[in-house]
Amino acid sequence: MRVLHRLELIASYLLLAAVSVLILFPIGIIVMASLKPSVEFMSNPFALPVRWTLENYEAAWNSASFSTYFFNSFSITFVSVLFTVLFGSMAAYALNWNFRGSKQLFSYFLLGMMIPIQAKIITLFILLKQLGILNTHAGINLVFVAFDLPLAIFIFYGFFKTIPTDLKDAALLDGCTEVGTFWRIVFPISRPIIATVVILTGLHVWNSFFLPLILLQDRRLFPVTLGLQRLKGEFSVDWPLFFAAMVMLMIPIILLFIFMQKQFIKGLTSGAVKG
């Protein structure tokens, strides 16, 4: 029995390691390429750099006022994720009360995800202009929140269902209001789910290119993804430079993921779900 367990463990590790290689290797190519001069990438894209250099990182950082763009990206991502989580969880919580029309409302939220962006981009632009929030962070934040709400509601809705009702009932009996129950009971024990939603919507906002491209015009308001396009020439791309910028773009998300992973574990050990 023990031997069997051992074998299974070894097999698991081997498999995990193999898949990790399949994932890390191509990403390694990007990182490697970002550390070599463009000429080397052109002649041999896959070899180790002959001359290791950080010049691409320096150039990427300097050439496109990256610090401003990074700040903008952080600000947009933070604000829109925060409100997506807040409004999304509230709506999902209420949708679980099964009032009349709740199912229809839930489907209504889902529909938004299915409409291709091409069908709404022009009218969205006109709307923002009419509201006077075109080319502002406020405008793009509102759009991101609205666009990510379906995803957030969808995920929250599914998981809130699994919260035992007696837990909520107990709180309500204790004299908690619905708002209080939501805030004190549901929100805290949903940390793994919140972490998931934060990561998934944060990722979406952080990486988005098309929406800010259309909705922002002032360079001072650009997020990094829009700054990146300035590194591309019209007919060519300096790939190592682009890769360097890409690696810089990845780092905050990796940190966020590692940080949020702790939430997964906490959610598990707090054991609140068991009630």
Binding site: S75, F78, N135, T136, A138, D218, R220
Partner: peptide, 25 residues
């Protein structure tokens, strides 16, 4: 949780206020 959330909200409003002040292109 509550306190940090409130704090976060405050930060958000400050940020939002900052960003709307940016001049149009």
């Amino acid at each position: 949780m509550k306190r940090t959330s409130l704090l976060l909200l405050l930060v958000v409003f400050v940020l939002a206020a900052c960003s709307t002040n940016a001049p149009p292109a």
